[in-house]
Design a protein around this nucleic acid. Structure first.
Length: 350
DNA sequence: AACACGGGGGT
DNA sequence: ACCCCAGTGTT
C-alpha cells in the first residue's frame, strides 16, 4: 500500500466533504459526531450534530442534565441506547477524567457506547494515535483492495484488514489516513457501482486488477423482519392525556409513548375496558392503522383516539398524566410523531 | 457468531 | 423489496 498512500492523502485533501465536525480537533465534538454517525448516514446526522452541540457544550454539561433532555435532542434519530450510553460516558469523563476525554486508546475503548471503531476514530482523529478505524466503508475498501473473500465484518476479515492497515498507517498522519479511507468508501468505493476510474487506490487494488470489484465484498444474508401488532390508546380528558415511559423492554427504551397493548393480527375488539371505568361513556374520536417499518421489525399499530372525562379513568401508576399541550416536551419515538402529527393536519375537514 | 437495536435514503 | 449507513452490547 505504501505506493498509493501519498495519492490517497492528496486525494483526500482535494476531495474531502466539508462536514461540520471536520473543522475541529475538539475530542468532545469528535466524540459527539462519531456516536451520532454510528449506523447513521452523514446527511441524516448533520442537523442532529448541530442541534446536539448547540444544546450541550461539554461532557459535564451532559452529566449534569436530565436524561429526558438528552433523549429529546436525540428524538427521531434511532438507536436510543447511544444517547443513554453518552450520558454514562459523560458522567465517567466528568467525574473520573477531569471533564476531558483521555488521550489513551485503551481508556477510550473502555467507555460505554465506544467500541472498536469509535475508539480508533477518536484516538486517531483527536489525538493522532495510529489505530485502524474499521467502519462499514473501510471494511468494504479493505475487502476489495486486498481481494478478500472472507465474509465482511467476520473475525478473520477484520483481523486481516486491521493488521494490514496498522502496518501501513502513516505514523504522523493517522487521523487523515483513517478519514481518507472512510471518505473513499463513502464517495468512491461505494457498495454498488464503485468509481474505480477515479480511485487513488486502484493501481494497487486487487479487486480492480482482477475486475472483481462488483463481487466483493462478500456479505452475509440478512434476516427478514418479524411482525408485531399493537393497540395504542390516545386518551384525552379535560385537556389532559396519558403517557408511559418505556424501560424494561428492548425497543425505544427510555422514550415516552401512549399506553399500549399487544394483540393478535386479526383482533379488532376495543382493548382498553380495564383502563376505562365505563367504556360506554367514552367516545371514540377515530381509529387509525399505521404500518411502521424498522430494520428488524414491522409494526402494525392501531391508534384509538378516545375522549372521556377525568373521573372515568382507572388510575394506574405506570401512566403519567400530562397536559395535552405539553407533549412536545417529552422525547418520543418516530411512530409517536406519526400519531401526533395528524392532530395539526386535521384542523379542518368537512 | 448471532441477535437486538431506529430510522432514512438509494436502487 | 432489499441494501446499507462513520456500530455496540448482550447472549
Amino acid at each position: 500500500m505504501d505506493r498509493v498512500i501519498p495519492d490517497l492523502l492528496i486525494w483526500y485533501r482535494q476531495n474531502a466533504r466539508d462536514l461540520p465536525w471536520r473543522n475541529t480537533q475538539d475530542p468532545y465534538r469528535i466524540w459527539v459526531s462519531e456516536i451520532i454517525l454510528q449506523q447513521t448516514r452523514v446527511e441524516q446526522g448533520k442537523s442532529f450534530y448541530m442541534n446536539f452541540i448547540n444544546n450541550f457544550h461539554d461532557f459535564c454539561h451532559i452529566a449534569n442534565s436530565p436524561e429526558d433532555s438528552i433523549l429529546r435532542v436525540w428524538q427521531g434519530l434511532g438507536y436510543y441506547s447511544r444517547a443513554r450510553n453518552m450520558i454514562k460516558t459523560a458522567e465517567i469523563i466528568c467525574h473520573d477524567f477531569g471533564g476531558k476525554m483521555p488521550a489513551n486508546h485503551k481508556q477510550i475503548l473502555s467507555l460505554p457506547g465506544i467500541g472498536a471503531y469509535t475508539a480508533a476514530a477518536i484516538a486517531s482523529f483527536a489525538f493522532g494515535l495510529p489505530h485502524a478505524a474499521l467502519d462499514g466503508n473501510v471494511r468494504r475498501v479493505g475487502s476489495r483492495f486486498l481481494g478478500l473473500y472472507e465474509v465482511l465484518g467476520s473475525k478473520q476479515s477484520d483481523k486481516i484488514i486491521t493488521e494490514y492497515l496498522e502496518q501501513h498507517i502513516p505514523i504522523n498522519e493517522a487521523g487523515e489516513f483513517n478519514q481518507a479511507l472512510i471518505e473513499i468508501g463513502a464517495t468512491v468505493c461505494k457498495p454498488q457501482k464503485p468509481d474505480c476510474h477515479s480511485c487513488p487506490l486502484s493501481k494497487q487494488c486487487v479487486a480492480y486488477q482482477k475486475n472483481t470489484q462488483n463481487e466483493l465484498p462478500v456479505v452475509a444474508r440478512k434476516k427478514a423482519p418479524v411482525n408485531s401488532y399493537l393497540d395504542y390508546m390516545w386518551l384525552e380528558a379535560d385537556g389532559y392525556t396519558w403517557l408511559t415511559k418505556r424501560d424494561n423492554h428492548g425497543i425505544w427504551k427510555g422514550l415516552y409513548e401512549f399506553p399500549s397493548k399487544t394483540r393478535d393480527a386479526e383482533t379488532r375488539n376495543f382493548p382498553f375496558e380495564d383502563w376505562i371505568i365505563n367504556p360506554e361513556y367514552a367516545s371514540i374520536l377515530s381509529v387509525k392503522e399505521y404500518k411502521h417499518q424498522l430494520t428488524h421489525r414491522t409494526i402494525y399499530a392501531r391508534l384509538w383516539h378516545l375522549s372521556t372525562s377525568l373521573n372515568n379513568i382507572v388510575n394506574k401508576n405506570e401512566f403519567t398524566r400530562i397536559e395535552s399541550v405539553s407533549i412536545e416536551a417529552y422525547p418520543v419515538h418516530r411512530l409517536m410523531l406519526k400519531f401526533i402529527e395528524q392532530k395539526e393536519t386535521t384542523t379542518h375537514h368537512d
